[in-house]
Every structure is written in C-alpha cells, then in structure tokens.
Design a protein around this nucleic acid. Sequence first.
RNA 1: GCGCCCGUAGCUCAACCGGAUAGAGCACCUGCCUUCUAAGCUGGUGGUUGCAGGUUCGAGUCCUGCCGGGCGCGCCA
Length: 594
Amino acid sequence: MSDLKRALGEAVEAAFAGLGLPAELGRVTASDRPDLADFQCNGALPAAKRAGKNPREIATAVAERLKDDPRLASVEIAGPGFINLRVADHTLTVRAGVIAADDRAGAEKLASPRRVLVDYGGPNVAKPMHVGHLRASIIGESVKRLYRFRGDQVLGDAHFGDWGYQMGLLIGAVMDEDAEIGGLVERLNAEDAPLSGPIPEPFQRVSLEDLDRLYPLSAARGKDDPAYRDRARKLTADLQAKKAGCYLLWRRFREVTHIALERDFHALGVDFDLWKGESDVDGLIAPMIADLDAKHLLIDDQGARIIRVARPEDKKELPPLLVVSSEGSAMYGTTDLATILDRQQSFDPQLVIYCVDQRQADHFEIVFRAAYLAGYAKEGQLEHIGFGTMNGPDGKPFKTREGGVLKLNDLIEMARAKARDRLHEAGLGEAFDEAEFEDVAGKVAVAALKFADLSNFRGTSYVFDLDRFTSFEGRTGPYLLYQAVRVKSLLRRATEEGAAAGPVTIAEPAERDLVLTLDAFETALAEAYDKKAPNAVAEHAYRLSQAFSRFYAACPILSAEPAVRSSRLTLAGAALKQLELALDVLGIAVPERM
RNA sequence: GCGCCCGUAGCUCAACCGGAUAGAGCACCUGCCUUCUAAGCUGGUGGUUGCAGGUUCGAGUCCUGCCGGGCGCGCCA
C-alpha cells in the first residue's frame, strides 16, 4: 500500500485522464487548509486555462468521478476551483495499521535503485578539522543515509587531502625541528628502503599537536621565503616519487591525523565507507595525462597544460582546468579528475554527489566539464551540492573569540558541556551512572548540532548559536530526542503493565492528525531525495514530534479502556519507529531514556 | 568589472510545478500538572515577503531594473 497522497493522486489523475485532460494535472498535495480538507488538487485551474473553460466546471466534473471512491469521506470544490478531499476514517485506520506493521514505517523503496557515491567531509592530513568541516560532514552524512534508506547502493568517501604542497611543507618543518628525523629522512630517501614496513621509531615521535603547531608557521614562511618554498616543493615531489624517507614520515602524518579524524567523526556519528584520498589516485595521473593528450584536450598555455571548458552560451568566462602546473606538478583539479576516473573504474557510480562548500561551485563545474569532455563520466552524472557557511553572531563566518578558527573537536566539546549543563538544570539523568550520563549528553549535543544545521536548507548560511541549539524547548534536536524518549518510556510502562498494542481505531482529532502526519513521511523523503535537501526530513521529524505530542496530551493511553489503549499503543509505537527512522536519516541517535 | 547566492514577523528560519488566510520556533501575553517524562500542550499579539515595474484569473515563488549583504573569478585546496 502506498501513501495516501500517491494513492489519491492516482485516482485523481485517472479522473482527469477520463475527461480527456492531462493526467499529471491530477497531482494531489497535502491540504493548505486543514480546516477544509486533508488533501487537495489544484489541477482544475491550469486545465481550465488550457481549455479555455471555467475551472469550477472542470473541478466539478472531476469531483463527480471521485465521489463514489470509498476511501473518501468527501469531495468538495472551493474557491476558484480547488478540489478538496477528505479521507474516510476507515482509510486512515487501514493506513495506520500498515505503517505500524511496516519496518520502514511507511517509506517506499525506489523502483530503480542506482549506484551513488557521496563525496563529503573533505578532511586534510595534518590540518585539524574546523567548523568549516562541520556542515560538509553533517549534510553529506545525511544525504548518504537518505539515499541508502531509499534503496540506492551508496558509498560515502571522505576524500582525504593528503598529497599536496602542504605535505612537503610539513616534512621540511619536521626535519628542521628534529635533527634525528631530518637525518633519517635523508638516509632513507637515499637508501631506497621499503615503503610498507613499520614506521621508524623516531618518526613516531611526531604528534598531531606538532603538525598543528608547525603547519601555520611553515605555510606562512613558504609564502615569502622562495628558498623555503622551493625546498617544500622538492620534498613534495620526493614524496610523490615515493622516496622512502619522505613517504614513511608522511605515513606517520596520515596515521596521527587519521586517529584524530576518526575521533571527531565518530563523536559526530559520521562514518565513511571509503577513506580514499588524493594519494590513492597518484598512480592514475600520468596515464590520465597521456590519455588526455591522446584525446587532444590538453593545451599548452603560459607554461602550463590546461583543458579549456568554456562554452559559447556561458554567461561568464570560466577559467580552464589546470591539469599540469608550469612547475610540472598536479593541481587539485588534476587529482579531482583522476578521482572521477578511479571511481568509474572501481564502482562505476551512476551519480556522484559532491557535498562541498558553495564557494567551490566554479571549480567543480570546471572539473565536471573536463570529465565529460574526456569521457570519464556522462553529462549530468556529477553533481555538486553546495552549502552556505556557518556564521557567528556577527553574520560572518564563525570564528573564536580570539578571531581564530575553531577546531571541530573543541566545538563538539563545547556542545557536550552545554548539554551536560542543560541536563543538570532539568534535574535529568541524576539516577544514571557516569557512562550513561555521558552517553546521553553526547547524543543531546550531536542532536543539537545536527538538527540545527539540517533544519535549514543547505544552500543558505545560518547563524551558530549554541545556546539556542541546545535548548530543550522548541524546534531543536533535544526536543526531538525528548519526544522519542517519552514514547519509549510509555511503551516500557505498557509492557510492565501487560498492555499490548492492537488494531487501530480513529476517534479523536489528534489521532487523525497523527496518522495523516505519519502518512506524509514518504513525501518528505522523496522531496529531500530529489532536492538533495535533508531539511525536508528534519521538517517532517519535527512535525511528527509535534503531532505526537498533541496526541499524547489529548489522548490518555495507559488509563484508557483496553480497546482504545491497544489502538493508541499501536499509534505510539508507529510514531516512535518513524521518528527514529527519520532521525537516523539525519544521522541523529536516540538514547533509551533521559 | 563579470558571475553566482541571499534579502520573509523584534530575533532564527520554513514555505510541496505559480494557487485559498505566507507558516514554525524563540521572545512577549494567556490558560493547563493529586493522571503515561510540563524539556510538554492550549489560545493570543506580531507581515507592504528589500524597493519599483512587468507577465498572469492568481506572484514570496517567474521576468527586468535598482538598493543592501555574502561569495567566487589560472598555477593553494
């Protein structure tokens, strides 16, 4: 059984078609006027426009064909020609039963699943993640889960930044600081030592803190000290040539970075299927350049080799893709292009979604066009979904009080601390042992951060306000957790009292609204999927919580007579299941109690 | 200079191909706990959707111009 919107839509479409009108005009949507109807169809208006007829006449003719549908309690014409549908209670009863019995709580599966790769997160070796990575991680994770939940075969790839100039800078900086490491790098480089063995002990002294400290210093020096910069470039080239000293030290960089990244991502409930990085496509670059050359796409320009991607219809002049720099090195567009090739060869995705800051829109347009020209992907298979920035109270990209970049780990810790305070304020979790309390605080913190982010459309920027996000009142992550936990508590009590769920009967308006809201899950998922916009799911989760909360306030459950109690327990169970599924799509985990 | 995005209630944000009375939350006012977690629920105040035109039976939504803000525009990623 499909959702009511679609089922009724098919009936109305048939009615339109029966009148010789285009079926697609029969599209049904949730009513804008719940006081008048449950669902509505506006198709009579455009139909009348095309046919030069009175819309109310057409609406009446459509209504005539629908009036005997047993699923409908009423069909009415209103205003200029809106067709208002009210669903029979019996239909809602049946639909509620189906949702309650369904593991997916009423969500459909895609008729034709695709292979989809989501590229998100974008962490860099040796550069700690900061708030800028927060949105990429949160949105990308949700898009990945959404696509997977609807039935696509999905891989999430972190696409590590681990093969560029910053690696050479750091190798040099570490060598300068620690003479023993410096000597060892040079000796190993000369020795042609094995690359895959254990990392030499002196290299293991290098910590993430060292890299954090050295990176900004060396990056700054590289800018105005040509000799220093040239040496870093040389070391980058040595690394890319896999000289053992550089390579083994680089492996240590990757190792310490990876540990920290996994900690941060884990704390956020973000998981990758692939931890591929720029270095993984290194071997593909030379043959790719040969291939591009053979296809006559490369043009020599100012000492560099480029691919021109501008099109006559472009409104603005798009720069070319820089494939080989004038110094002979690969640029980030080069590795991005090679990555497209790599993915085509390994997974052959039908769609690749790049979840990266909106500011990179031009870059991706250029890379995508180059990939299409080279035949590494089909037009439209590559899609960049950009997002806005997370801003501070001043409306500018978020900074710490000192004006620096806030590390992601520190941000998560701030949110946790705030969550602990809120729990204490409310006198919650006092009976919990330390481990459970921390678990709940962590989940509240993540729910606060993620819901605040995902409830906005990804394309717009938003203002970061931790006090507001962690509030337990209103439209927040913690509110949603609270609602879910409240149902869990209720169901536990029901079990203790031996009360079982049973067939649904709809009597109260709050019950009716709850079932209609449950039915809207599929619509929300489909919209989020099509627009790559998780905020539609966030919106649904919030509406569902509200609908449940109204139901909970208006309809006593455990104290009701047995048949009513059974029905309401079924509704409560269905609401919980759907809420948890929706939150899971958002990447938000629910504790057992709080 | 060229291009992209944004401008909606005091604040933070929604708005399903162009449809009815532009919705939530916060804040403010108002009720509801001897009853399932009141972190909740009920009712209310609050709008010239930046401005000016245009298309349309109908515009927050589409088109043009302007004002204001953000971002991008070849060897960093």
